[in-house]
Amino acid sequence: MSILYDEGQDAIATESRRVLEARVNKDELLPLLETTGEYHHGFWTTAKEQGWTALALPETYGGLALGLVELGLIAHQAGRSLSGAPFLTSSFGAAKAIELYGTDAQKGRWLPGLASGEIIGAVAFAHGADALPLHPPVAFDGARLDGTAIGVTGGLAADIAVVFAEHGGAPVLALAELGPVERVAVPSFDNSRCIADLHFAAAPAEALVAGNLARDAALHILALQAVITAHEQTGGAEALMEIARDYAVTRKAFGQPIGAFQSIKHRIAELYGLVELARANCIHAAAREGQDDFVTAAAAARLSATDAYDSAARDCVQIHGGIGVTWEIGLHLHMRRARSLAIEQGSSLFWEDVLVDRLSGEAA
Protein backbone atom coordinates (compact mmCIF):
# COMPACT_ATOMS: atom_id res chain seq x y z
CA MET A 1 0.00 0.00 0.00
CA SER A 2 1.08 3.57 -0.65
CA ILE A 3 2.00 5.64 2.37
CA LEU A 4 -0.76 8.00 1.22
CA TYR A 5 -4.51 7.50 1.57
CA ASP A 6 -6.73 7.26 -1.49
CA GLU A 7 -9.65 9.58 -2.22
CA GLY A 8 -12.24 7.46 -0.44
CA GLN A 9 -10.11 7.13 2.66
CA ASP A 10 -9.47 10.87 2.72
CA ALA A 11 -13.23 11.39 2.61
CA ILE A 12 -13.68 9.11 5.64
CA ALA A 13 -11.07 11.09 7.54
CA THR A 14 -12.57 14.46 6.60
CA GLU A 15 -16.14 13.53 7.43
CA SER A 16 -15.32 11.81 10.72
CA ARG A 17 -13.29 14.83 11.82
CA ARG A 18 -16.14 17.17 10.93
CA VAL A 19 -18.67 15.10 12.85
CA LEU A 20 -16.53 14.65 15.95
CA GLU A 21 -15.48 18.28 16.15
CA ALA A 22 -19.16 19.21 16.07
CA ARG A 23 -20.29 16.69 18.69
CA VAL A 24 -17.42 16.30 21.19
CA ASN A 25 -16.02 19.12 23.32
CA LYS A 26 -13.99 19.39 26.49
CA ASP A 27 -16.84 20.87 28.50
CA GLU A 28 -18.63 17.52 28.21
CA LEU A 29 -15.47 15.53 28.89
CA LEU A 30 -14.22 17.33 31.99
CA PRO A 31 -17.06 16.16 34.29
CA LEU A 32 -16.34 12.53 33.35
CA LEU A 33 -12.98 12.78 35.11
CA GLU A 34 -14.77 13.04 38.44
CA THR A 35 -17.35 10.31 37.77
CA THR A 36 -16.45 6.64 37.93
CA GLY A 37 -18.18 4.34 35.46
CA GLU A 38 -19.56 6.97 33.09
CA TYR A 39 -18.57 7.53 29.48
CA HIS A 40 -19.47 10.10 26.84
CA HIS A 41 -22.73 8.72 25.47
CA GLY A 42 -22.74 11.33 22.70
CA PHE A 43 -19.58 9.90 21.19
CA TRP A 44 -20.82 6.32 21.33
CA THR A 45 -24.19 7.30 19.85
CA THR A 46 -22.36 9.05 17.03
CA ALA A 47 -20.18 5.99 16.41
CA LYS A 48 -23.27 3.82 16.05
CA GLU A 49 -25.15 6.31 13.88
CA GLN A 50 -22.18 6.75 11.54
CA GLY A 51 -21.64 3.00 11.17
CA TRP A 52 -18.15 3.08 12.64
CA THR A 53 -18.92 0.05 14.81
CA ALA A 54 -19.59 -1.97 11.65
CA LEU A 55 -16.73 -0.63 9.58
CA ALA A 56 -14.29 -3.56 9.68
CA LEU A 57 -16.73 -6.45 10.10
CA PRO A 58 -18.14 -8.78 7.37
CA GLU A 59 -21.26 -7.78 5.45
CA THR A 60 -22.80 -11.16 6.34
CA TYR A 61 -23.19 -9.97 9.91
CA GLY A 62 -24.18 -6.37 9.24
CA GLY A 63 -20.69 -4.97 8.72
CA LEU A 64 -19.33 -2.73 5.98
CA ALA A 65 -16.44 -5.05 5.01
CA LEU A 66 -13.82 -2.32 5.07
CA GLY A 67 -10.57 -2.80 6.95
CA LEU A 68 -8.07 -1.74 9.55
CA VAL A 69 -6.96 1.23 7.45
CA GLU A 70 -10.42 2.78 7.43
CA LEU A 71 -11.13 2.03 11.10
CA GLY A 72 -7.73 3.50 11.92
CA LEU A 73 -8.76 6.74 10.23
CA ILE A 74 -11.79 6.95 12.50
CA ALA A 75 -9.64 6.20 15.55
CA HIS A 76 -7.20 8.94 14.52
CA GLN A 77 -9.98 11.51 14.51
CA ALA A 78 -11.34 10.11 17.78
CA GLY A 79 -7.92 10.68 19.28
CA ARG A 80 -7.86 14.26 18.06
CA SER A 81 -11.22 14.98 19.67
CA LEU A 82 -10.58 12.96 22.87
CA SER A 83 -13.46 10.52 22.42
CA GLY A 84 -14.92 9.76 25.82
CA ALA A 85 -15.52 6.00 25.42
CA PRO A 86 -13.16 3.06 24.74
CA PHE A 87 -15.61 0.81 22.92
CA LEU A 88 -14.52 1.55 19.34
CA THR A 89 -11.38 -0.46 20.16
CA SER A 90 -12.67 -2.95 22.72
CA SER A 91 -15.77 -3.98 20.75
CA PHE A 92 -13.66 -4.30 17.62
CA GLY A 93 -11.22 -6.59 19.43
CA ALA A 94 -14.00 -8.78 20.78
CA ALA A 95 -15.73 -8.91 17.39
CA LYS A 96 -12.53 -9.90 15.56
CA ALA A 97 -11.86 -12.65 18.08
CA ILE A 98 -15.32 -14.07 17.42
CA GLU A 99 -15.05 -13.58 13.65
CA LEU A 100 -11.64 -15.24 13.38
CA TYR A 101 -11.96 -18.02 15.96
CA GLY A 102 -15.62 -18.48 16.81
CA THR A 103 -18.12 -21.02 15.50
CA ASP A 104 -20.84 -20.10 13.03
CA ALA A 105 -23.33 -20.12 15.88
CA GLN A 106 -21.20 -17.74 17.95
CA LYS A 107 -20.73 -15.43 14.98
CA GLY A 108 -24.44 -15.38 14.21
CA ARG A 109 -25.33 -14.66 17.81
CA TRP A 110 -22.88 -11.87 18.60
CA LEU A 111 -21.48 -10.20 15.48
CA PRO A 112 -24.68 -8.44 14.31
CA GLY A 113 -25.07 -6.79 17.71
CA LEU A 114 -21.42 -5.79 17.85
CA ALA A 115 -21.66 -4.39 14.32
CA SER A 116 -24.67 -2.25 15.23
CA GLY A 117 -23.11 -1.16 18.51
CA GLU A 118 -26.07 -2.44 20.51
CA ILE A 119 -23.71 -4.96 22.12
CA ILE A 120 -20.48 -3.71 23.72
CA GLY A 121 -17.48 -6.00 23.87
CA ALA A 122 -14.37 -6.09 26.04
CA VAL A 123 -11.08 -7.96 25.83
CA ALA A 124 -9.73 -9.28 29.15
CA PHE A 125 -6.21 -10.50 28.43
CA ALA A 126 -3.93 -8.58 30.79
CA HIS A 127 -3.02 -9.20 34.41
CA GLY A 128 -1.58 -5.99 35.80
CA ALA A 129 1.29 -4.88 33.58
CA ASP A 130 1.54 -8.29 31.90
CA ALA A 131 -0.47 -8.22 28.68
CA LEU A 132 -0.40 -12.00 28.17
CA PRO A 133 0.60 -13.71 31.43
CA LEU A 134 2.21 -17.12 31.30
CA HIS A 135 -0.37 -18.38 33.80
CA PRO A 136 -3.61 -16.39 33.45
CA PRO A 137 -5.44 -15.70 36.72
CA VAL A 138 -8.74 -16.94 35.27
CA ALA A 139 -9.42 -20.69 34.97
CA PHE A 140 -11.73 -22.30 32.42
CA ASP A 141 -13.17 -25.78 33.01
CA GLY A 142 -14.72 -26.16 29.59
CA ALA A 143 -17.98 -24.45 30.47
CA ARG A 144 -17.30 -21.92 33.25
CA LEU A 145 -14.79 -19.28 34.27
CA ASP A 146 -13.38 -18.72 37.75
CA GLY A 147 -10.93 -16.03 38.82
CA THR A 148 -10.40 -12.29 38.39
CA ALA A 149 -9.48 -10.38 35.26
CA ILE A 150 -7.81 -7.17 36.44
CA GLY A 151 -8.13 -3.74 34.89
CA VAL A 152 -10.34 -4.52 31.89
CA THR A 153 -10.89 -1.45 29.74
CA GLY A 154 -14.58 -0.98 29.01
CA GLY A 155 -15.41 -3.71 31.51
CA LEU A 156 -17.96 -1.65 33.42
CA ALA A 157 -20.21 -1.21 30.41
CA ALA A 158 -19.47 -4.31 28.31
CA ASP A 159 -22.05 -7.00 27.61
CA ILE A 160 -19.55 -9.70 26.66
CA ALA A 161 -15.84 -10.28 27.14
CA VAL A 162 -13.21 -12.38 25.42
CA VAL A 163 -11.05 -13.71 28.25
CA PHE A 164 -7.52 -15.10 28.17
CA ALA A 165 -7.74 -18.01 30.60
CA GLU A 166 -6.12 -21.33 31.46
CA HIS A 167 -7.61 -24.77 30.88
CA GLY A 168 -5.73 -27.85 32.01
CA GLY A 169 -2.43 -25.97 32.06
CA ALA A 170 -2.89 -24.64 28.52
CA PRO A 171 -4.12 -21.19 27.41
CA VAL A 172 -7.60 -20.67 26.03
CA LEU A 173 -9.67 -17.79 24.70
CA ALA A 174 -13.14 -17.96 26.21
CA LEU A 175 -16.24 -15.92 25.46
CA ALA A 176 -18.43 -14.95 28.40
CA GLU A 177 -21.56 -12.91 28.92
CA LEU A 178 -20.97 -10.36 31.66
CA GLY A 179 -24.53 -10.04 32.96
CA PRO A 180 -23.99 -12.30 36.00
CA VAL A 181 -20.34 -11.31 36.51
CA GLU A 182 -19.40 -9.09 39.44
CA ARG A 183 -17.64 -5.93 38.28
CA VAL A 184 -15.65 -3.68 40.56
CA ALA A 185 -14.94 -0.21 39.18
CA VAL A 186 -11.31 0.87 39.13
CA PRO A 187 -11.14 4.65 39.71
CA SER A 188 -8.48 6.17 37.49
CA PHE A 189 -7.28 9.50 36.20
CA ASP A 190 -9.24 8.79 32.99
CA ASN A 191 -12.55 7.44 34.24
CA SER A 192 -14.25 7.46 30.84
CA ARG A 193 -12.25 4.30 30.03
CA CYS A 194 -14.73 2.42 32.28
CA ILE A 195 -12.02 0.17 33.73
CA ALA A 196 -13.17 -2.69 35.94
CA ASP A 197 -11.97 -5.84 37.64
CA LEU A 198 -14.13 -8.75 36.50
CA HIS A 199 -14.73 -11.40 39.16
CA PHE A 200 -15.77 -14.66 37.55
CA ALA A 201 -17.41 -17.23 39.84
CA ALA A 202 -18.56 -20.25 37.85
CA ALA A 203 -19.55 -17.82 35.07
CA PRO A 204 -20.89 -19.60 31.96
CA ALA A 205 -18.48 -19.32 29.01
CA GLU A 206 -17.65 -20.88 25.65
CA ALA A 207 -14.25 -21.62 24.19
CA LEU A 208 -13.17 -19.76 21.06
CA VAL A 209 -9.71 -21.29 20.62
CA ALA A 210 -7.66 -23.49 22.95
CA GLY A 211 -4.25 -25.10 23.19
CA ASN A 212 -1.07 -23.99 21.43
CA LEU A 213 -2.96 -21.68 19.07
CA ALA A 214 -4.61 -19.68 21.86
CA ARG A 215 -1.60 -17.54 22.79
CA ASP A 216 -0.88 -16.70 19.14
CA ALA A 217 -4.56 -15.88 18.66
CA ALA A 218 -4.52 -13.60 21.71
CA LEU A 219 -1.41 -11.83 20.46
CA HIS A 220 -3.05 -11.31 17.08
CA ILE A 221 -6.13 -9.74 18.68
CA LEU A 222 -3.90 -7.53 20.83
CA ALA A 223 -2.02 -6.47 17.69
CA LEU A 224 -5.26 -5.54 15.92
CA GLN A 225 -6.31 -3.46 18.91
CA ALA A 226 -2.82 -1.97 19.22
CA VAL A 227 -3.00 -0.62 15.67
CA ILE A 228 -6.32 1.09 16.40
CA THR A 229 -4.93 2.47 19.67
CA ALA A 230 -1.81 3.68 17.85
CA HIS A 231 -3.99 5.62 15.42
CA GLU A 232 -5.84 7.16 18.36
CA GLN A 233 -2.56 8.10 20.02
CA THR A 234 -1.27 9.63 16.80
CA GLY A 235 -4.44 11.69 16.44
CA GLY A 236 -4.03 13.01 19.98
CA ALA A 237 -0.36 13.82 19.38
CA GLU A 238 -1.22 15.65 16.16
CA ALA A 239 -3.86 17.75 17.92
CA LEU A 240 -1.43 18.68 20.69
CA MET A 241 1.28 19.61 18.20
CA GLU A 242 -1.15 21.97 16.46
CA ILE A 243 -2.32 23.45 19.78
CA ALA A 244 1.30 24.09 20.79
CA ARG A 245 2.10 25.62 17.40
CA ASP A 246 -0.89 27.96 17.46
CA TYR A 247 -0.13 29.09 21.00
CA ALA A 248 3.55 29.67 20.18
CA VAL A 249 2.78 32.08 17.33
CA THR A 250 0.31 34.16 19.37
CA ARG A 251 1.77 34.22 22.90
CA LYS A 252 4.43 36.92 23.20
CA ALA A 253 7.36 37.36 25.56
CA PHE A 254 10.03 40.02 25.44
CA GLY A 255 8.24 41.68 22.55
CA GLN A 256 8.05 38.68 20.19
CA PRO A 257 6.11 35.42 19.77
CA ILE A 258 7.53 32.66 21.95
CA GLY A 259 7.72 30.52 18.83
CA ALA A 260 10.70 32.62 17.78
CA PHE A 261 12.79 31.15 20.59
CA GLN A 262 14.81 28.07 19.71
CA SER A 263 13.74 26.16 22.80
CA ILE A 264 10.13 26.39 21.60
CA LYS A 265 10.46 26.11 17.83
CA HIS A 266 12.81 23.12 18.04
CA ARG A 267 10.47 21.32 20.40
CA ILE A 268 7.52 21.78 18.06
CA ALA A 269 9.64 20.65 15.11
CA GLU A 270 10.59 17.51 17.03
CA LEU A 271 6.92 16.84 17.73
CA TYR A 272 6.17 17.13 14.03
CA GLY A 273 8.78 14.47 13.31
CA LEU A 274 7.40 12.15 15.99
CA VAL A 275 3.83 12.55 14.71
CA GLU A 276 4.75 11.86 11.10
CA LEU A 277 6.83 8.83 12.06
CA ALA A 278 3.92 7.46 14.10
CA ARG A 279 1.48 8.19 11.26
CA ALA A 280 3.64 6.32 8.75
CA ASN A 281 3.99 3.34 11.07
CA CYS A 282 0.23 3.28 11.65
CA ILE A 283 -0.56 3.27 7.94
CA HIS A 284 2.01 0.55 7.31
CA ALA A 285 0.73 -1.63 10.16
CA ALA A 286 -2.90 -1.28 9.11
CA ALA A 287 -1.98 -2.21 5.53
CA ARG A 288 -0.11 -5.34 6.68
CA GLU A 289 -3.19 -6.95 8.25
CA GLY A 290 -3.23 -10.61 7.27
CA GLN A 291 0.48 -10.70 6.37
CA ASP A 292 3.25 -12.58 8.17
CA ASP A 293 4.85 -9.39 9.47
CA PHE A 294 1.63 -7.84 10.80
CA VAL A 295 2.45 -8.27 14.50
CA THR A 296 5.92 -6.79 13.92
CA ALA A 297 4.42 -3.77 12.16
CA ALA A 298 1.77 -3.40 14.89
CA ALA A 299 4.46 -3.37 17.58
CA ALA A 300 6.42 -0.68 15.74
CA ALA A 301 3.29 1.45 15.30
CA ARG A 302 2.34 1.04 18.93
CA LEU A 303 5.79 2.04 20.22
CA SER A 304 6.19 5.08 17.96
CA ALA A 305 2.65 6.32 18.65
CA THR A 306 3.08 5.97 22.43
CA ASP A 307 6.30 7.97 22.24
CA ALA A 308 4.66 10.65 20.09
CA TYR A 309 1.60 11.08 22.32
CA ASP A 310 3.58 11.07 25.58
CA SER A 311 6.06 13.62 24.22
CA ALA A 312 3.33 15.84 22.77
CA ALA A 313 1.31 15.83 26.01
CA ARG A 314 4.33 16.77 28.08
CA ASP A 315 5.76 19.37 25.71
CA CYS A 316 2.45 21.06 24.94
CA VAL A 317 1.84 21.67 28.64
CA GLN A 318 5.36 23.05 29.07
CA ILE A 319 5.05 25.36 26.07
CA HIS A 320 1.87 26.82 27.58
CA GLY A 321 3.56 27.45 30.91
CA GLY A 322 1.36 28.01 33.95
CA ILE A 323 -1.92 28.12 32.03
CA GLY A 324 -1.16 24.67 30.65
CA VAL A 325 -1.90 22.99 33.97
CA THR A 326 -5.25 24.66 34.61
CA TRP A 327 -8.48 22.66 34.61
CA GLU A 328 -10.26 24.96 32.19
CA ILE A 329 -7.80 24.81 29.30
CA GLY A 330 -8.13 21.02 29.22
CA LEU A 331 -4.62 19.97 28.19
CA HIS A 332 -4.66 17.51 31.08
CA LEU A 333 -7.38 15.60 29.22
CA HIS A 334 -4.76 14.68 26.63
CA MET A 335 -2.15 14.03 29.32
CA ARG A 336 -4.51 11.61 31.08
CA ARG A 337 -5.50 9.91 27.83
CA ALA A 338 -1.87 9.57 26.78
CA ARG A 339 -1.10 7.76 30.04
CA SER A 340 -4.21 5.57 29.80
CA LEU A 341 -3.59 4.48 26.23
CA ALA A 342 0.08 3.81 26.97
CA ILE A 343 -0.85 0.81 29.14
CA GLU A 344 -3.89 -0.53 27.28
CA GLN A 345 -3.21 -3.54 25.03
CA GLY A 346 0.15 -3.96 26.70
CA SER A 347 2.77 -1.45 27.81
CA SER A 348 5.77 -0.34 25.78
CA LEU A 349 7.88 -2.96 27.57
CA PHE A 350 5.56 -5.70 26.30
CA TRP A 351 5.64 -4.46 22.70
CA GLU A 352 9.41 -3.95 22.81
CA ASP A 353 9.76 -7.61 23.77
CA VAL A 354 7.41 -8.63 20.97
CA LEU A 355 9.36 -6.56 18.45
CA VAL A 356 12.73 -7.88 19.59
CA ASP A 357 11.51 -11.48 19.49
CA ARG A 358 10.14 -11.05 15.99
CA LEU A 359 13.19 -9.27 14.61
CA SER A 360 15.55 -11.74 16.30
CA GLY A 361 13.66 -14.56 14.65
CA GLU A 362 14.00 -12.92 11.24
CA ALA A 363 17.72 -12.30 11.79
CA ALA A 364 18.27 -15.92 12.78
Rank of each mutant, 00 (worst) to 15 (best):
D6N: 15
A11H: 11
A13N: 02
T14G: 12
T14R: 15
T14A: 15
R18A: 09
A22N: 02
E34H: 12
E34R: 10
G37K: 04
G37R: 03
H40M: 00
H41K: 14
K48W: 00
L68W: 10
V69R: 15
I74L: 00
A75K: 11
H76L: 14
F92A: 11
F92P: 01
F92K: 07
A94N: 02
A94Q: 06
K96A: 01
I98H: 03
A105P: 05
Q106R: 00
R109C: 02
G117K: 06
E118G: 07
G121D: 06
H127V: 01
G128H: 05
A129C: 05
A129I: 01
A129V: 07
L134K: 11
A143Q: 14
A143S: 15
A149Q: 10
I150C: 01
V162D: 08
V172Q: 06
A174P: 02
L175M: 02
E177G: 13
E177Q: 12
P180R: 06
V181F: 11
V186M: 07
F189H: 14
S192N: 05
S192F: 12
H199G: 03
A201K: 10
A201S: 14
A202E: 15
A207M: 05
N212Y: 02
H220E: 13
A226L: 02
G235K: 00
G236F: 08
A244Y: 10
A244S: 04
A248Q: 06
V249T: 13
T250S: 09
A260E: 12
Q262V: 13
I264N: 07
L274K: 10
A280E: 14
C282K: 04
R288N: 13
E289Q: 13
A301C: 08
A308V: 07
S311F: 07
A312M: 09
R314N: 10
V325E: 09
W327F: 09
W327I: 15
H332A: 05
H332C: 03
R337N: 14
I343G: 08
I343Q: 12
G346R: 04
S348Q: 15
S360D: 13
G361V: 02
